[in-house]
């Protein structure tokens, strides 16, 4: 899955990645928009920036994200 700017995504699960912090648990289930994907090389391992509806902008590992169809 490559993420692109402006895509709607869902935080559909917790990530097992070390960069997942405990406060992020409450974000599971929220929807948001990709605001800064890995802007260099579509690295599946890079952290991508997601702006969550009503809950701010954060960087997440990609395995917790899935694209929402419009």
């Amino acid at each position: 899955m490559t993420f692109r700017n402006g895509q709607k995504v869902e935080i559909y699960q917790k990530s097992a990645d070390e960069s997942w912090e405990s406060y992020m648990d409450e974000f599971v289930g929220l929807h948001g928009i990709i605001t800064d994907p890995d802007a260099v090389k579509n690295d599946p391992d890079a952290l991508v920036e997601v702006s969550l509806d009503e809950k701010g902008t954060h960087r997440f590992p990609q395995d917790c994200l899935r694209i929402l169809e419009d």
Binding site: T35, S51, L52, D53, E54, K55, G56, T57
Partner: peptide
Amino acid sequence: SGACPMLTPAPCQMACPAG
């Protein structure tokens, strides 16, 4: 929390990493 409607920030402000 968003429970106090008068004090809920706008989505743009929420989205701004600097707030």
